[in-house]
Design a protein around this nucleic acid. Structure first.
Lengths: 257, 257
DNA sequence: GTACGGCCAG
DNA sequence: CTGGCCGTAC
């Protein structure tokens, strides 16, 4: 089975790309971030012909997450209970016995802003969520745009970027703290090389072609799940199409199912 | 020879439609209104392959006029000297011995607004311009979006619309006053029927298909010029394309040249 | 650079 | 409804 994650940067602007990608890859699960659409504006129609069940939670202008599932959605949750702001950054469901958690972590704006504090707290709330609702020996997949580069090789210029809201000690510690609960980074299990990115800032001129990117999108899995994983890869193909997102999909393939 | 007028409602949004239309019809002169682009943003490149000479005068957000000419622009004027606001609503040039005047008349907003007073004045300034700069026995073509329906048959619901800034006594008098200087309405010379419109308000649901329109775009000519006119027609074809303007072109065909 | 949403105007 | 533009966020 295939589980994928893709920050689409507006689902309404990415209908074409998303449809093409789903039709080609037919993952059992696709988790999407930054849909940027209120639930009433979610373009359900545009995807209906593909037969996916879709769980989505949006808000006015920012954030927004969704899960495309080839099986009916079970045990849906559409917010992180610990988040007092109830921002649209969390959706969870069950797929067979697997728990799927899709998150869009706050970017954090600047190190000394309230938004960065919110980002740090969000990771602690998420860890608390896992503590209270499940156990590391269940099959759990936690995916999404974490807005963190975990290691030097996850940014194109680590020296220059060190201290960024997505690449600093505090934020790496925050992710590691959640991972220590029981998650492994599936991509790094298979691909230890540097320069493997999932995000290229639109504002960096020609950033994609010069490969000036960041690895911010992850598929994390508990050991039980990770053992079943055959491969995890970054798919750069959608960047070749018209009006690409600034992120690109990550796909994990599993033996079972 | 063909002389045409077309309110494009943003020239940058209408590059495709305009290019297709010019390539098909190849008028000697096309006068365009509501370009909605500052001169520095005028998409000159987009039209370069057609070989037209282009005279344009724009401003930040509103108005803006242009003339596409198959011969070099002579005697260019880019403002109505009488207008103290110097809004981008007037361009004039010579084509052989013909004077071409392209105007985008103010809409007027509401009858008791300053903008309506400005609209009335604009017509009087224009008449003054003709008085001072030329004579009715010259070949003159005055075209544009006049934002006036001249007769009952020029609106889809004259009873309901009477009193509108584009359909009331004062404004009809204002146009007639300029016409009395020496212009005839070329379209009406050939087509006396009702329900011949050049504008359909986007806000009227399905207005175009229900033909709930207005005739606001005119090609006016002095007698010398009018005698040469073989036909004057409204071309609804551009309304069939993607992203149509709310106006559609009017074309006059002349014997000479 | 790209997207949304809110404003103004027609 | 459609357009431009502005502010905001990433």
């Amino acid at each position: 089975m295939k589980i994928a994650t893709f920050n689409v940067n507006s689902i309404r602007s990415r209908v074409e790309i998303l449809n093409a990608w789903l039709a080609e890859h037919r993952p059992q699960i696709l988790c999407v971030q930054e849909t940027k659409a209120q639930n009433s504006d979610f373009p359900l129609e545009a995807f209906s012909h593909l037969g996916y069940h879709i769980l989505f939670q949006g808000q006015k202008k920012y954030n927004g997450v969704a899960i495309f599932s080839d099986m009916p959605i079970r045990n849906a949750e559409i917010e992180l209970p610990q988040d007092p702001d109830k921002q649209a950054r969390f959706v969870k469901m069950s797929y067979n016995n697997i728990i799927i958690v899709n998150t869009y972590i706050p970017q954090g704006q600047s190190i000394k802003s309230d938004k960065f504090q919110y980002k740090l707290k969000w990771f602690s709330w998420l860890k608390d969520y896992f503590d209270k609702t499940c156990s590391p020996d269940q099959p759990i997949v936690w995916v999404g745009d974490l807005n963190v580069a975990l290691e030097d090789k996850d940014v194109y210029d680590p020296k220059k970027m060190w201290g960024d809201v997505c690449f600093c000690q505090d934020i790496q510690d925050a992710v590691r703290n959640v991972m220590n609960w029981g998650f492994v980074d599936l991509f790094r299990q298979f691909h230890p090389q540097p320069d493997q990115y999932t995000f290229w800032d639109y504002r960096v001129p020609n950033g994609f072609h010069r490969n000036m990117g960041w690895r911010l999108d992850y598929i994390m899995a508990t050991p039980k799940m990770a053992q079943q994983c055959i491969d995890c890869r970054i798919d750069k193909a959608p960047r070749g199409l018209e009006k690409p997102s600034d992120h690109t999909p990550v796909v994990a393939e599993f033996k079972a199912f």
